[in-house]
Design a protein around this nucleic acid. Structure first.
Lengths: 314, 314
DNA sequence: AAGTAGTATGCTCATGTGAGCAAGTTGCTC
DNA sequence: GAGCAACTTGCTCACATGAGCATACTACTT
């Protein structure tokens, strides 16, 4: 009954009032004076305009961020930062490039002169390093040893980021995993290693990749220093993900086994870093990221929106 | 400097606040309490969100109305009602159908029981009559004699509208133009005619077609009762448009010549009708409508948006 | 190290706005 | 035409908000 009498003329009136208020920014009182109405009438016209769909509020972030998903992620997993990035496809290269760019922006935003940045390696973080243009003056610390192709190694990523930040790079010139704990121990004793390891406690912001073990998509899984037997054993123990060198099962529990053979920040030190931001996405990483979130080792996440949807079960 | 530090995280925060305020409808104070901020901070975040394009206000009428054009028309020509209707094409049939539908809606909206509706004929008003579904209980008065195909005559339009309104129809069973004033005078003397003519003073809302003389698109121009010599003479006098039977030149002045031969409301009576709404559009009607508006005979207009743009010179 | 310009934050005070109510108005029923 | 119900309108009062200012902080200059 009330709907029926809103004809085109009233529609135009409502739209006019809405335009004056929301676009031009005039107050209800001003509009009321112009039109010879009471401010109450104008207020009700605005209500009607909203109810009738004449005024729409559109909230959208410029750029590829999916706002709703980002907020849901943050809420659902109790994260400090959560960014769901819309990507054209879930092809690894596309996802890595987009996540890298957003990670670079986030880092630029949250990093201050007082921060010390920790990094691991990987293609996504390599893309991040490439997308970085400016940074405050921060030291940059490599959190784990070297694995994978040269341009994706931690060393290379650290070099690039520290150069943008014009801060000091603390690199790890050693493999991520070696075949036995004694060798690892010996490497860690080297003065250069000691110097870098001593920086771990200073790190305030860590950007970390998340490796997947099932399905395998990780710098560690395929590592030549891990024997097939070890790999099988670890899979049997339920390993799903690795963050730095820490292995995590589906429940988010840390699986202790080969950490002594790794040249990387230890789990306890990793937990002490205030901001640990996982940057990972793509089809194969879903359960790994779920595990990483469950572990509590990371408190922020940058991922693609398709993966985000899977995480929150939509 | 200030723009540079708005990164993705702040973007999400702004978007969250904007969503809470504009979509959920919470006050700045409530949001501030939730987030542990001052209400001023929240207010500034909202300002930033608007400035940064995160919040957009979209004002659009549902349906085919072009709000901006309608308002400009109203403003520019000092109209009481002005509706610019978006039509898919400017093909006459399309325009007539759309304008008719909007005219029907407008009539339904503004007509009350106290109104008496006056109508002329034509394809657009015929479409209007077809689109009408409900009306208050009003009498319906035919303002001009018959011309054109049966289903578009004033008689037929009046029949349909009065039937919807369940009011009394006052028809004119006579031609729009006859070949000489004496015949016209004799026809006007008929009791039925007298009865209808007596209603003209009661009419409060008139929906009128606008006929174009240059280019010719009119029920009168081609009328067999007008001799070629007369037609030429009128064109030489600068006739551009006809409203009811009143001829108008480009300046909006009434051209007196054949009114004595017409069976229709006279110009003076037409001027006394409070709401005279011209309903016309399409490629050929531009200068006719401009003339009709200039004459002041009509105080409202329903037209297509392409024509509206031409009128306001865009 | 002190100065200084730019920026961010939160205050006061005046103004803008919403909820709910009371007085009209309309349209209907009997 | 009286009575009634549904609706519209504008009011009061309490709350929400914006403008402008004072303070604090920052980053850069001297």
């Amino acid at each position: 009954m009330t709907e029926l009498n809103i004809g085109p003329d009233e529609l135009v009136r409502l739209a006019f009032v809405a335009h004056q208020h929301y676009i031009v920014g005039r107050t209800r009182i001003q509009i009321a004076q112009d039109l010879g109405l009471s401010r109450f009438k104008v207020g009700r016209m605005l209500d009607d305009a909203i109810a009738g769909g004449i005024v729409k509020f559109e909230i959208s972030t410029p750029g590829p961020l999916d706002l709703g998903l980002s907020l849901k992620l943050k809420d659902r997993f109790g994260l400090k930062h959560a960014l769901a990035v819309r990507t054209p496809t879930e092809a690894p290269e596309t996802v890595q490039e987009h996540l890298g760019a957003v990670a670079a922006e986030l880092l630029r935003e949250i990093a201050t002169d007082d921060d010390v940045i920790g990094l691991t390696a990987g293609r996504t973080l390599s893309a991040m390093a490439g997308a970085l243009t400016t940074l405050p003056h921060c030291d940059v610390v490599q959190l784990a040893g070297v694995a994978g192709p040269i341009q994706e190694t931690g060393v290379e990523v650290i070099r690039r980021v520290s150069s943008v930040a014009s801060g000091r790079p603390w690199s790890i010139y050693a493999p991520l995993v070696v075949s036995d704990p004694r060798t690892a121990h010996a490497i860690r004793q080297q003065p250069d290693m000691q110097a870098t390891f001593a920086q771990f406690a200073r790190v305030t912001i860590a950007l970390v990749a998340v490796g997947s073990w099932s399905p395998p998509d990780s710098q560690m899984y395929d590592n030549a220093a891990i024997s097939p037997a070890q790999r099988s054993s670890l899979l049997e123990k339920g390993v799903r993900a690795e963050v730095c060198a820490t292995l995590i099962d589906a429940q988010g529990s840390v699986v202790e086994d080969i950490e002594d053979s790794c040249i990387a920040i230890d789990t306890a030190a990793l937990r002490r870093i205030p901001d640990v931001i996982a940057v990972a996405g793509g089809e194969h990483k879903t359960s790994a990221i779920r595990a990483a979130l469950a572990s509590g080792l990371v408190n922020s996440l940058i991922t693609d929106s398709a993966l985000a949807k899977r995480l929150i079960g939509e």
